[in-house]
Design a protein around this nucleic acid. Structure first.
Lengths: 370, 370
DNA sequence: TTGTAAGCGTTATCAC
DNA sequence: GTGATAACGCTTACAA
């Protein structure tokens, strides 16, 4: 005997209506009801209409667990963020990226499960989570050279896209990164165009590829044989920028420009420059990186800086992953093999090898500091 | 005939081992294997040991969907953030709160599903999501007076805790909020203690309770009959703060202090004060709110401001919700009825009525601007 | 096109 | 204590 002879037109308090109830209500089999709920291909319109009616009256919503159990697809993507450093949350970088990711995922009815790892203790949890089949794919941010997380993810064997080029074996994975090197070059070139000749650099922590790439870009635009004393390493924080600046002033009192690897460090540098009686941009021109508006627009003077489209990068990460999951966006037109990502989205890395990673462009934003 | 006669000692490539396989391997029934996997109460130690061995050898991880299907518990909590305004992501407020939430949830093996709503178009998606039984409870941030989201959540009928006091019917829901009024009072009191007498206020958008409460606090500490022209409304952004400051200077050139409802507006105000030739804190003392370090430590001079423990508030939200879900933390000691939240965590609202909401304390952080 | 029925991997209710 | 066995709600061959 099938469930209720006649389902109530209002959803039950507590237990939600099942497909069985919808089928009964519409006078069809569960199979047909299921077909209609999933798009209705191959069902006579008359019946489909009845089923849709029943769905509406009953307020039916598919049970996700049941569906996942049989399809083996969760409709969810894990976003993995390791945060050994507090820094991550004192700048809006991740927020922005996540917003881009979220937008793209929800456009494809995919849920975002956020995994914030607090330290090595959480690695087990991550492994268990991925193994448990909670998510169909993963988006991860590669932070440090020696991060064990990529290995854990690889072991889980699910499609993954990284945010930022991983330090280890970047050719083996898919990633989306800003054109850090190009952005740095543009910054230095701009300073040179201003007539500056003794351009210092405050680098980020050199176990992160973004910091390394910016340093590389800086070096490439320097006059050959430039003084290595013009480079100081910071940690992407305000304080470290201040420290580095003090060090640079001591070593090279004659510097007339500074390119800092991010805005936070630039703001620290700015403070120290003022304390030492240097005017900005008069005595020293200053350029940052990130265009983190909460900082760059707030300093005095506001920072000239290199902008990266963080939200766009997030969207791109999600899009790449969805493609791997076989859920490329339909409204985007036909999906060309390896072609979902259009030229405007970024620049392909030279190698052009298997996992098509994407490098997104940066722009120099002129404000008052240089 | 049951599945494999003898399971392989290495996990299959592709399909993961099931409980059935573990049971077979250990020579017990599926029921017993299940008991062990879930804690092993009521199973002879010898057998339990065998099962644990099989689990380890096979690399067994429970299938989440199957478990959810029968227990009707997902082990996930939805975190709902509406972001009509870009502001949300240009300040680290949500990032911090989410980190607190994440920490508490993962300590209880609960997943965080992030729902970022991009506008009214996403309301359907939210309703469907909640109805689909993806999550056991919800954490939401109430942003505006007329937000329809609370109604949607209520209709879904799941335990919910709000971040920030909702404008509508706050007594009907559980929430965690900072002591905005108290913080504002402390700020103004401090300015008065400095000998300032014409203290202006740059309020936040008055359709948010946080802005309202800060305004109330300001008013309460003002000398009775203070000039209402000393109040200007902003929008929690740098630019709006600048605009408000210009307006205030025009209306009340004699002002000697400003209390801004957040740091971003304070920084905008600071810029305008300088442009008008006023020194800070010499001519005008300035106090912000939030202690958003990326801003408060970066301005010149750094901001004196009111700090709220955002991460702690996030943790508290999660803890309250977990309690409602019957998953109060064990290591916290016995769970007293309505008593999981200790006094140090915050101040109970006066009413003391049913949904025990929590108000967390604020602290004045002295820097150079006042 | 539509219906029947066999799972999907667990948990939970019983007997034993 | 332990083991059959019936759900849980859905998708999907396979038949009709």
């Amino acid at each position: 005997m099938p469930s209720e002879p006649s389902a109530p037109s209002e959803p039950f308090p507590g237990s939600r209506p099942t497909l069985e109830a919808v089928a009964a209500r519409a006078g069809v089999s569960r199979a047909t009801a299921s077909r209609v709920v999933r798009g209705g291909a191959g069902v006579r319109e008359a019946l489909a209409e009845k089923v849709r009616g029943a769905v509406a009256e009953l307020g039916y919503v598919p049970n996700h667990a049941a569906r996942t159990l049989v399809t083996r697809r969760t409709g969810a993507v894990a976003v993995i963020i390791a945060e050994p450093e507090v820094r991550i949350f004192s700048d809006p970088f991740f927020s922005r990226q996540i917003r881009g990711i979220s937008r793209e995922l929800s456009a494809h009815d995919t849920q975002l499960v956020l995994l914030l790892l607090d330290g090595p203790g959480d690695h087990d949890r991550l492994a268990r989570y991925l193994a448990g089949g909670h998510a169909d794919g993963a988006l991860a941010f590669s932070l440090h050279t020696d991060d064990p997380i990529p290995a854990i993810i690889r072991r889980a064997g699910m499609p993954t896209v990284y945010g930022g080029r991983p330090a280890a074996d970047p050719a083996a994975v898919r990633y989306v990164d800003a054109d850090n090197r190009g952005g740095a070059r543009a910054a230095v070139r701009y300073l040179r165009g201003l007539g500056r000749r003794r351009i210092a650099h405050i680098a980020g922590p050199l176990d992160q590829t973004s910091a390394l790439d910016r340093l590389d870009g800086y070096r490439e635009e320097q006059a050959p044989g430039a003084d290595p004393a013009l480079i100081a390493e910071g940690a992407f924080t305000v304080e470290s920028g201040a420290l580095a600046m003090a060090e640079l002033l001591a070593r090279c009192p004659g510097l007339d420009a500074v390119f800092a690897a991010n805005d936070l460090m630039a703001s620290g540098a700015l403070r120290v420059l003022k304390e030492h009686g240097r005017t900005v941009p008069g005595d020293v021109a200053l350029v940052g990186f990130d265009d983190m508006d909460a900082v760059a627009e707030v300093t005095d003077p506001p920072l000239t800086t290199v902008r990266q489209d963080v939200e766009g990068m997030g969207r791109l990460m999600a899009r790449l992953l969805l493609r791997d999951l076989g859920r490329a966006r339909p409204e985007q037109g036909g999906v060309r093999p390896e072609g979902d990502v259009r030229p405007e989205d970024g620049i392909r890395p030279e190698d052009g090898s298997a996992p098509a990673s994407v490098i997104t462009p940066t722009t120099l934003i002129r404000r008052a500091s240089a």
